[in-house]
């Protein structure tokens, strides 16, 4: 039966250990069992002191993060290490893909997008209806597969004194049914504000067209994409393709940083589903503050200059 450990499957991109792996490791710690990390070879940025055991697979990352291959890897790991109590993945494109396929293969319970754990009841919190409510799930058999929401558990990681044992899982054959070909960067060229994760959006309140280059500078420095409200387009300060709102584009970025946008209803309709809305406006009564998660009442252009200075200086 269960061998009393948590197996964390690493997410690796272009040789780098993704930061959201800290959340899977963090949940592993909260579960109170030794944590083993499963990863391919040649990965940079792993802090092995966070782990109790490291299991290395002789495969490149494109082969490793393949749901068909993952099943064969897990079969091997379960054989050599015993069956874990929990198998944890990041709740990401590949993490969720591998977890679903593996849970289906092993007929194992799976809760995805876990953002909380209740020690007393042993239940996992999973968001429903875009975080409007949460379901607490209990697993009825083992091993339980979980995918973990980024940002949820990273503060729980702890460091060991000594480096963990590193073991090899051995060679893994690629899968016939699915093969990795290459990475593709999303096509550049025309700006698509609907695809951006971080939008810096400006409104009429910035004052004049002359201010636009400084906002472009800030967006570049913060690696944000610049968008705007309708009056900015009407005044030809920015092109139509940058417009957010009912008569422009509907966007759902991770962060929507609204600078000098008062928040007309038609604008709100285009951005209200952003994960995090930060509004900066000089008017404390601006309607956008009703929709924002964070608000700052300030002289927007002054704060912009300070941000450019800080970001570029760091």
């Amino acid at each position: 039966m269960s061998a009393g450990y948590v197996l964390v499957v690493a997410e690796v991109r272009r040789g780098l250990f993704e930061e959201r792996n800290l959340d899977t490791i963090g949940l592993g710690r909260e579960l109170g069992l030794p944590v083993s990390l499963l990863l391919p070879e040649n990965v940079n940025g792993v802090d092995e002191l966070l782990l109790d055991r490291v299991l290395k697979v002789s495969a490149d990352e494109g082969t490793f993060l393949n749901p068909l291959v993952m099943v064969s890897i897990l079969v091997k790991v379960f054989e050599s290490q015993g069956q874990p109590d929990f198998v944890l993945f990041t709740h990401s494109s590949s993490g969720a893909e591998c977890a679903a396929y593996a849970a289906g293969h092993f007929s194992a319970p799976l809760v995805t997008d876990v953002s909380g754990f209740d020690q007393s009841t042993g239940t996992f919190f999973k968001s429903y209806y875009s975080d409007k409510v949460f379901a607490q799930f209990k697993s009825t058999s083992s091993p339980t597969f979980l995918t973990v929401r980024s940002g949820s558990f990273r503060e729980n990681v702890t460091r060991n004194q000594a480096a963990p044992a590193v073991e090899s899982v051995g060679d893994i054959a690629p899968a016939e049914g699915r093969t990795f070909l290459e990475y593709v960067e999303e096509a550049g060229g025309a700006v698509d504000i609907t695809k951006a994760e971080f939008l810096l959006s400006v409104g009429r309140g910035i004052g004049s067209k002359d201010e636009i280059p400084r906002y472009e500078e800030l967006a570049r420095a913060m690696r944000a994409v610049l968008s705007c409200s309708r009056p900015v387009v009407d005044k030809l300060w920015l092109p139509k393709e940058r417009q957010v709102g009912t008569s422009g584009k509907t966007v759902k970025p991770k962060v929507y940083l609204a600078m000098a946008i008062s928040g007309a209803f038609q604008h709100i309709a285009g951005m209200k589903d952003a994960d995090c809305i930060i509004a900066i406006n000089k008017d404390p009564e601006a309607p956008i503050f009703q929709y924002a998660h964070f608000g700052i009442v300030a002289d927007v252009n002054k704060l912009r200059d300070k941000l450019i200075e800080t970001v570029k200086g760091s």
Partner: peptide
Amino acid sequence: LIEVTKWAYPPKKEGAAMIAGDVNEVCGKL
């Protein structure tokens, strides 16, 4: 294989959390 034991509300959010302070502080917090 999994069962919902309970439904719960997310932690309450009351409008925007306002970030105050001078321009340096606000910039840092942002």
